[in-house]
């Protein structure tokens, strides 16, 4: 009985649940106090803004849980966008370009994965390197120009809603992928092994977990997802450009950390991350509707991030202190 209460209390005071509550709070307050926030038009915009961050955050969460990082995702996105424009100019059909782009993203992931797990280089250094490399390649492919004449069937689908109603088409994609990644991360042996790897790679190795192979495939998946997002991004703005998605990796990492995933690995949950992404996007959207400047938006995002790292530590410290004081008082009155 008291066991269950204790479990419940520790679950309720864990950062992932705090962030979920905070997110709901922001959504509710914003829809009452910010004009136009609750409209279906704004909802569609918000989902479209959310789309790239949330999709890339799915594999990023797994990678950070294993104690690694992938900073090359936004550049992979840019490269696939460039390739998409170039292939379109070569006259390939859109039906063959889309899977090709996902493969290109996966190949970018293979390169990262090989450098990190095959050669044993640190992922931070490798993916900073490929961040520059892939973006450079994107400019080699397409230069400063843009390709814009993609078929409306596709661009319209990305920005459209189901039956012209309030639910954006891409929301289905988000929900489906989030479900798949959530189940894999939280209810499969593979997902379990990620936490073991992040918290103690040696013990994971001694338990028969193939640490290097697992990490390798995570990078491949991360690349493929970045490729898919490159396609969606290009279609949304109907514009293939080499600089598409520049800087997005920071937003993704920020959202993942805000969602309670430890940058040191071994800790975090996908629901927390999803809430983190929604919180960041909703807050930015609401502030923008209130005509807050871009710089101020950055300040808010940054502050949230620092708080997300700070608060969990503060709460445990406070809790410990409080308990000690109570025990001392009890002893004094005994």
């Amino acid at each position: 009985m008291s066991d269950r209460v204790a479990t419940l209390r520790s679950r309720l005071t864990s950062w992932d649940s705090i962030i979920v509550v905070l997110t709901v709070l922001v959504l509710v307050v914003a829809s009452f106090s910010v004009d136009n926030f609750g409209t279906s038009r704004n909802f569609t915009f918000m989902v479209l803004d959310l789309l790239p961050i949330i999709l890339i955050a799915l594999p990023m969460t797994m990678i950070i849980v294993t104690g690694e990082i992938d900073l090359s995702v936004a550049s992979t996105l840019g490269l696939t966008s460039s390739m998409m424009g170039w292939l379109w100019n070569q006259g390939l059909s859109i039906e063959s370009i889309i899977p090709l782009c996902i493969v290109i993203g996966a190949v970018c992931g293979v390169v990262n994965g090989f450098l990190i797990t095959g050669l044993g280089l640190p992922s931070l250094a490798v993916t900073i390197g490929t961040l520059a490399l892939y973006r450079g390649l994107a400019f080699v492919v397409l230069g400063d120009g843009a390709v814009a004449d993609f078929p409306f069937d596709y661009t319209g689908w990305v920005t459209g809603t189901i039956g012209g109603g309030a639910v954006p088409n891409v929301l289905i994609l988000i929900v489906a992928l989030a479900l798949i990644f959530g189940i894999v991360q939280h209810a499969t042996p593979f997902g379990r092994s990620l936490y073991a790897i992040g918290a103690n790679a040696q013990a994971a190795h001694f338990s028969g977990i193939r640490v290097a192979r697992t990490k390798f495939w995570l990078y491949v998946v991360s690349g493929a997802v970045a490729g898919l997002v490159g396609v969606l991004w290009t279609l949304r703005y109907a514009s293939a450009r080499a600089d598409n998605g520049a800087g997005l990796e920071l937003a993704v990492v920020a959202a993942v950390l805000l969602g309670g995933v430890s940058i040191f690995g071994g800790k975090g949950s996908l629901p927390g991350v999803l809430a983190g992404v929604v919180l960041l996007t909703a807050l930015q959207n609401a502030l923008r509707l209130e005509d807050v400047s871009g710089q101020a938006l950055n300040i808010v995002t940054g502050t949230l991030l620092v708080l997300s790292v700070l608060l969990p530590n503060v709460t445990t410290a406070v809790r410990g202190n409080w308990q000690r004081r109570k025990l001392r008082q009890a002893a004094a009155t005994r």
Partner: peptide, 19 residues
Amino acid sequence: QQGLVMELSIERNVTLPRA
């Protein structure tokens, strides 16, 4: 270092090689 993942629960540790 080798036997257990200290941060994980008792349950997760016992079931790790059996998952």
